[in-house]
């Protein structure tokens, strides 16, 4: 028996998270290059903006899902929660005729409240996240239909509402760069949440909970309280997604939402966040969401049949996760 040599931690060129981000980022670049070469129609301002616009809602949802997944949980309700908050905005703005800021606050508050409920079910009542959020997913889907009377709620009385997502503040300043507000909101939110994850207590506990929940508890941290807070924050972010999609469609579509949670989770996973919790990043998630919409858009531009688009998306998800596993196994 030889003694294990005592050495300081292996210095690594890049943190493991950074490696995965690099991998995902490289894949994104390759996809962009490939589609640009394959079709002259791909790399056009209008199309790139369309891709970004298509990413905005899924990207925001994926940010919410990232927070929860880093804690080692899962949130299946992000899609229908998004719809629910859109409907709430519709009720406030169209049914009650209140001012736009009230509708925005109401949607985000409703999202946070629902997240708070999910979090409480999970942290206090110890219902497994999968079940608790599956229940919430159905509850919110049903409530959206009930509240809206199963009909879309249009925002025609609030003419500036569509501007929230489809207008372009940047475009007003720099006409050559008409990036829609929805996309800017996604990127700004990503920066904020990335900062929250890496620089604040809440973020720290996100990783800590996903890494070893019992250890967090034994360290005297109010683990349950923080978990509820994280789910509530994720819920609030879903509220932003709700506003974005409602604004883009100029309507709250009550039947929409189911299935969107899977797109969000797929983006998170492609971005290298581990479903086991403890590791992940917002940058990765954004890249993951971009990969998904670039892929879909590119395949459409190449006129690949719709059936095959679905197949390719599935293959990419599995390949991304497998590549991540290989990398991690190598890292030991």
């Amino acid at each position: 028996m030889t003694a294990t040599p005592i050495a300081t931690a292996k210095p690594r060129l890049l943190a493991s998270g950074a490696q995965q981000k690099l991998l995902a980022f490289a894949s994104l670049i390759v996809l962009l290059l490939f589609f640009s070469l394959a079709s002259p129609n791909f790399l056009q301002t209008a199309n790139i903006l369309a891709i970004l616009q298509a990413t905005s809602v899924n990207g925001v949802l994926a940010i919410a899902a990232t927070l929860v997944i880093i804690t080692g949980g899962i949130d299946l309700s992000v899609g229908t929660l998004m719809t629910f908050t859109a409907v709430i905005a519709g009720v406030v703005l169209t049914f009650w005729g209140l001012a736009m800021p009230v509708g925005i606050l109401a949607a985000i508050a409703a999202g946070a409240a629902c997240g708070f409920i999910s979090g409480s079910l999970i942290a206090r009542m110890k219902i497994p996240p999968f079940i608790a959020t599956l229940g919430m997913m159905l509850i919110l889907k049903g409530l959206s239909l009930v509240i809206s009377g199963t009909k879309p709620i249009y925002f025609n009385d609030t003419p500036s509402f569509p501007q929230l997502s489809t207008g372009s503040l940047i475009g007003a300043l720099v006409p050559a760069l008409p990036v829609p507000n929805g996309v800017m909101i996604l990127f700004i939110l990503a920066l904020i949440i990335s900062w929250v994850l890496n620089r604040t207590t809440l973020g720290r506990y996100c990783f800590a909970l996903g890494s070893n929940e019992e250890a967090v508890r034994l360290s005297g941290v109010n683990a349950d309280g923080w978990k509820v807070a994280i789910y509530a924050l994720a819920g609030g972010i879903c509220g932003i997604a709700g506003l974005l999609i409602a604004s883009r469609l100029n309507s709250a579509q009550p039947a929409l939402g189911q299935g969107y949670e899977l797109d969000a989770i797929a983006a998170v996973v492609i971005g290298g966040t581990s479903l086991a919790g403890g590791r992940g990043s917002i940058l990765g998630t954004i890249i993951g969401a971009l990969i998904m919409s670039v892929l879909l858009n590119g395949l459409r531009i190449l006129s690949v049949a719709q059936e095959w688009q679905t197949v390719v998306t599935g293959v990419i998800i599995i390949a991304a996760v497998y590549a991540d596993m290989l990398r991690r196994r190598r890292a030991g």
């Binding site: 079709s39 129609n41 791909f42 056009q44 209008a46 199309n47 369309a50 616009q53 298509a54 809602v57 999609i245 883009r248 469609l249 309507s251 579509q253 039947a255 929409l256 939402g257 189911q258 299935g259 919409s293 879909l296 858009n297 459409r300 531009i301 006129s303």
Partner: peptide, 19 residues
């Protein structure tokens, strides 16, 4: 996939326009 996915239909329309 479903008739509820209004936004997905718009993404398709946007991609079609790009072509």
């Amino acid at each position: 996939d479903t008739e509820a996915q209004v936004d997905k239909q718009m993404d398709m329309l946007a991609a079609a326009l790009a072509k």
